[in-house]
Design a protein around this nucleic acid. Structure first.
Lengths: 263, 263
DNA sequence: CTCCCCCCTTAACCAAGATCAAGTCGCCGC
DNA sequence: GCGGCGACTTGATCTTGGTTAAGGGGGGAG
C-alpha cells in the first residue's frame, strides 16, 4: 500500500499571479527537448492517454514551456488556479506551510508527471504551495484549454476520474504508512520504491537532498541521518545522494518483519 | 487544512462476494427512515447534487437498503468492487491491515456520506477493508446502475471529479497533520472539528469509541487516555463518549500556538 | 589558497509515545 | 449477587525521535 512511484494527477499548482520569481531562462544549459518531445510527454501522461491529436493540439496551443531554477516558488496556497503543470525535467515539491513557517512536503513531482489539474475543478485556488527543488522545465497549461479539452473529450474525464482515484489511494496508503510504520521503515520503503529491483545489490540515486527526503517521510534531517546510520547493518550505505543497498530482499523482509513495532 | 467534517466521496467499498456476516435485520429497532427519506439522502449527497429525478430513480432501482450490526465486515481489501455504499445511519470504518494484524483506520463514514464509489472506476477491487463500527443502515448501489448514471449525466461526472478533488485535499491535509502536528494537537483538532462552535463552552459527543478515535489520530488507546488527561488543564473534560470543552477558542489557540513543537 | 556557505553528521539531553502489566468501572447473562 | 467481559485508565519502564549545539567536508567565490 505504500508509495511506489505512481504517476500522480491532481493537486493544485499554477504560477501565481505574482510572477516575481522568474529569472527568465538564465540557464539555457538545461534546454527543453523541443516541442515534439513535449507533445510526446503530454500524450504519454496517464491523464491524456489516447487523447485525440487535434484535441491535444488545442490543448498545447494554450500552453507554454517554461524553465525555472530551484527554489523558485511556482505558486502559493490560495493563489488563483488558472493553469496546471506538466514536468518535463527537474522536480517540484508541493508542500503545506505551518503557521510557524515549517513546511511539510505532501508530494514531489518529477519528469513525466503532472500536477495541479485538480485545483481548477473545484475551488479554483491552489490548496498548497509549489516550489521547484531541481532546476526544472515545465509545461504550463491554461485553465481554459484544459476545461475545453475536458468537455470535448468525455473519455478524458473518465480517465481523469480514474487517475484521481489512483492518486487518492496513494495518499490513503501514505496515511497508513505514517500511522503504522516507524520512521526507519518509511525510509526503507522509500528506498525500495526507488528501484524496480527485487533482490540483489542495487545502487539508487536519491532524487533530492536529504532535507527534502526527511520531510517526505515525516522526520527531521538529523533523524534521517540516524536512521540511515542504523540501516547500515542491513546493508544500506550512503555517500552523498548515492545509496547502495547490498540486498534488496533482505531490506524488504526486515521492513516487513519489523511489522509490529510501531515506534 | 485539517479534517473538518467533510463530505467524502471516494474509497472502495462493497459488500464482498462472501455475504457471510449478515445476520439479516436482527435489530428492527433501528429502522431506516423509509424510501422517501433514502431518496432525500441520496439527492443531498454532494456527489448527486442536482441529479435528474429519473436518473435518480434508475439509480435506486438497482440498489438495496441493508442494515448491518457493528463488527460486520462489509468487504475486504481485494474484493471485487461491484457496488458502493451510502450511509443512512450508523458508522463504517475503512481501514488497512498490516501484515501483523494491526489495523489503521483511514477514514470513518457517518450518516449522509457515501464511500467506495471510486473503487469501481479503476481497478474494480477495493483497496481497503470496510467494517461497520456502529449498527448501520446503508444503501448499496450496484456498479452497473452507477456507471449508467455516470454516463447518462455528464454533469454528474464533473461533480464527481470535484468531489474527488475535495476528498483528495482532505487526505493531503491529513498527511500534513500527521507529519507536523503532535498527537495531542491532532486530538484537539479532532475535537474542534466535531463542533461548529468557535468559542465558549461546548459539549461534543464522540462519534465512536476511544479505541477507534486513537487509531484515527494515529496513536494507541493508552496514549489517547493520557492525552485527554493532559488536555484537562485546557478545559477539556471527558466522561464516556461525552466531551466538554470549556473554551473552544482557548483550545484552538493552544493548538495553534504550540505550532512549532513537533513532538 | 582560503574563506565561507551549505549540506550533512554526531552527540547529549529531553520529552513523549509505545509497551507491558495491573487495575477500575459498567454492563450483561446467569 | 456473581462472574466475566469489554472499554477505559493508570503506572512503570523503555525506546525513539525532537531539540540544540557543535563539527566535518566539499564546492564556489574571491
Amino acid at each position: 500500500m505504500s508509495g511506489g512511484p505512481v504517476s500522480c494527477p491532481c493537486h493544485p499548482s499554477c504560477e501565481g499571479p505574482t510572477a516575481d520569481c522568474d529569472r527568465t531562462l538564465t540557464t539555457p544549459q538545461r534546454v527543453f527537448k523541443g516541442v515534439r518531445s513535449a507533445q510526446e510527454v503530454v500524450a504519454a501522461l496517464p491523464l491524456f492517454d489516447g487523447i485525440l491529436p487535434d484535441v491535444l493540439n488545442r490543448l498545447l496551443a494554450d500552453s507554454a514551456t517554461i524553465t525555472r531554477r530551484r527554489s523558485t516558488l511556482l505558486f502559493g496556497a490560495g493563489d488563483e488556479a488558472d493553469c496546471f503543470y506538466i514536468v518535463l525535467d527537474g522536480a517540484v515539491k508541493l508542500f503545506a506551510l505551518a503557521q510557524d513557517g515549517r513546511e511539510s512536503i505532501v508530494e514531489i513531482f518529477g519528469p513525466g508527471t503532472s500536477f495541479a489539474e485538480a485545483a481548477m475543478l473545484s475551488t479554483g485556488r491552489f490548496p498548497l504551495h509549489a516550489e521547484v527543488i531541481e532546476d526544472a522545465t515545465l509545461i504550463r497549461v491554461g485553465r481554459r484549454a484544459f476545461l475545453y479539452t475536458l468537455h470535448s473529450d468525455h473519455a478524458l474525464a473518465y480517465r481523469m476520474l480514474a487517475a484521481l482515484v489512483k492518486w487518492n489511494r496513494r495518499l490513503a496508503g501514505e496515511i497508513s504508512d505514517l500511522k503504522e510504520l516507524t520512521p526507519w521503515q518509511r525510509v526503507a520503503e522509500f528506498l525500495l520504491a526507488q528501484t524496480p529491483a527485487t533482490e540483489g545489490r542495487v545502487e539508487v540515486l536519491l532524487p533530492f537532498n536529504k532535507e527534502v527526503l526527511a520531510s517526505r517521510v515525516g522526520i527531521r534531517r538529523e533523524s534521517l541521518s540516524r536512521v540511515l546510520g542504523r540501516l547500515r547493518v542491513l546493508g544500506v550505505h550512503t555517500s552523498g545522494n548515492a545509496v547502495q543497498i547490498d540486498d534488496v530482499d533482505l531490506l524488504r523482509r526486515a521492513c516487513f518483519e519489523a511489522g509490529s513495532g510501531r515506534n
